[in-house]
Design a binder for these strands. Structure first.
Lengths: 338, 338
DNA sequence: CTGAAAGCGCTTACAG
DNA sequence: CTGAAAGCGCTTACAG
């Protein structure tokens, strides 16, 4: 920061006419270990205090080769799912003395790549990443370079990276099965157009549940783009419910899809759960205030974020091999699922 | 990061048998300015490329005395109001080549102080802070040190710091006036127990509106603590509406208070707006799905965050004196206010 | 017990 | 046009 009154160890050393080393030892509480003379130590402490000395973490980082910083790349920090994860990561990281630098990729490979480079240039000690489509190669090179890395929310099949994710297949399998048991047959799944495994698994969970109950002919998946999800969902829901189609239920694959869907359902005045049962994903205050409180698939976010931080720290310390964690979802049942 | 394959300018220079200076010049696009020989420049570029050279931002920061990093201290990054601000700050900062490091203070002075110190130690070039109670002295010392600083959402009266805030007085004055014009007399305001000016101003706006319409005898303010807001609000709403009290409307002073209040209103089955009119603050998806879509005071978050980043950059560049921005609120009227 | 010195990876006057 | 060198603020062997 180079602030006017910024004072360095050298300044203190000069003033006290001792070596910089001594000041450094005292600063870092190594006065015993390094056998610094008691009077000198006291003098140095006093001076440090009086000058309100603030260590320069940048210099320390350069020297130590460690910034005590974790880079966090999410899709969008304004999305409550990710901001909640970020908050938990922040608190957990702080326990280990780490600070978080974040960035939002918007599911965009170019932004994602830029973000990884920015954070690596800034020498973060490790990276927690919600990977987006098209960054496989970049991620692969990180793994090859042995950059401490943990993927969160999604993983890249075949990539030997640490990750902590939900059992997305089971999540949608359970949710869909629940709807089927409630007598629903024409269950429509809303997902994002994406080749990423978490989306594929969610879809597969739904499909397999349908197949298991011989409802393969009723499988119907609406895949929407990230950019115009709102419009596409509204059009789809509008079309599905205005014609002669028989539709029993909607299953949404993410929280943003769920919320967007609820806006359409509200606007179109659909009767939930009587006409249409609904199950959402992740949770949201919107789910609680929707006129028919939403049933949803709950992710253990606390566990997910804490585990991610734990894994990244272990990797930074070099004490850990690859570790891949799959967490259990929880189906929270309320009114909307019938 | 000290990764195995991490390569430095020195390595490149050695390999090409040129000086580090030359490599640095080429890296920074100063080959013309510094009149680097065309063949050497080409050679160096090629080598930089081939080795996939990644500059060490930490070394550069130490040398330049600038980290190109902005510290952002909010109350809680998981709160949508702040995560939305953070997202806008992120995008805006990126335009200027800056990265954001964030931290959540939880309205806690100790955490807030720690956060400021952590970020300053890390040599952020400037700080955007949502100040919490009890950090006045610390903030004052930052101003005295000429640390680039902008307060956001709240300011500290008497402190010559930059800030960008809402006209909180007008916001609540307008909201309360609207309720009065709708025929409401017994309007209860919910606020946090806080000595911070934004809260005082919101309360004052409400009070003055009541006084203006000779309703001073109807003024009723419920101030709750940050820790057990939920419990206190529920008890208050429950008591207010279960007895013989006549209550016409609720005015909530923040988005968390609004959402918490809505949970109680929902649980207690109060009829909005017939029994009780409601106006919330900031906006939330909860407001849109509450059975009686909520009227609320809208803050221009986009403008607020962009202005904050603009001000901090100007200060960092040293081109700006103190600048204090007060933004206009907007009263979004829907069903809940009657 | 203490200090002089190297070095982390850069940038940038300065000299030639 | 090019290189040797200082220095940003630290930490840490090393020597005494």
């Amino acid at each position: 920061m180079n602030r006017k009154n910024s004072i360095s160890l050298k300044d203190i050393a000069k003033e006290l006419d001792v070596s910089i080393a001594l000041v450094s030892y005292v600063l870092n509480g190594k006065e015993k270990e390094k056998r610094v003379g008691a009077e000198k130590a006291a003098l140095i402490k006093k001076s440090l205090q009086e000058h309100n000395y603030i260590p320069n973490h940048v210099a320390r980082s350069l020297r130590n080769g460690s910034t005590k910083t974790i880079g966090l790349i999410v899709t969008d920090i304004a999305n409550t799912f990710f901001s909640s994860l970020a908050r938990i990561c922040e608190d957990e990281a702080k326990k280990y003395g780490y600070t978080i630098v974040f960035g939002s990729s918007d599911e965009n490979p170019a932004k994602s790549d830029l973000l990884m480079n920015t954070l690596i240039t800034r020498q973060v000690d490790g990276l927690i990443i919600v990977p987006s489509e098209g960054s496989n190669n970049h991620l692969k090179s990180l793994v090859e370079n042995e950059t401490p890395l943990v993927l969160i929310d999604r993983f890249i099949p075949g990539l030997a990276a640490n990750y902590v994710v939900l059992d997305n297949y089971a999540a949608c399998m359970d949710a869909c099965t629940h709807l089927i048991r409630k007598g629903k047959k024409d269950i429509v799944m809303f997902a994002y157009k994406s080749s990423l495994i978490h989306m594929k698994d969610r879809i597969k969970g739904y499909e397999d549940a349908m197949k298991k109950y011989k409802l393969e002919d009723h499988i119907r998946i609406i895949e929407v783009g990230y950019e115009d999800a709102q419009q596409e969902i509204h059009t789809a829901i509008s079309n599905l419910t205005s014609g002669t189609d028989k539709i029993d239920a909607f299953l949404f694959a993410t929280n943003t899809l769920s919320i967007t869907g609820l806006y359409s359902i509200q606007k179109l005045n659909l009767k939930v759960p009587d006409e249409i049962a609904v199950i959402g994903f992740d949770g949201s205050v919107a789910f609680d205030f929707f006129y028919s409180p939403l049933s949803y698939i709950r992710q253990p976010m606390d566990e997910m974020a804490k585990e991610a931080v734990r894994l990244i720290i272990e990797q930074i310390k070099g004490t850990k091999k690859t570790s891949q964690v799959v967490l259990k979802p929880e189906l929270v049942l309320r009114e909307s699922s019938g």
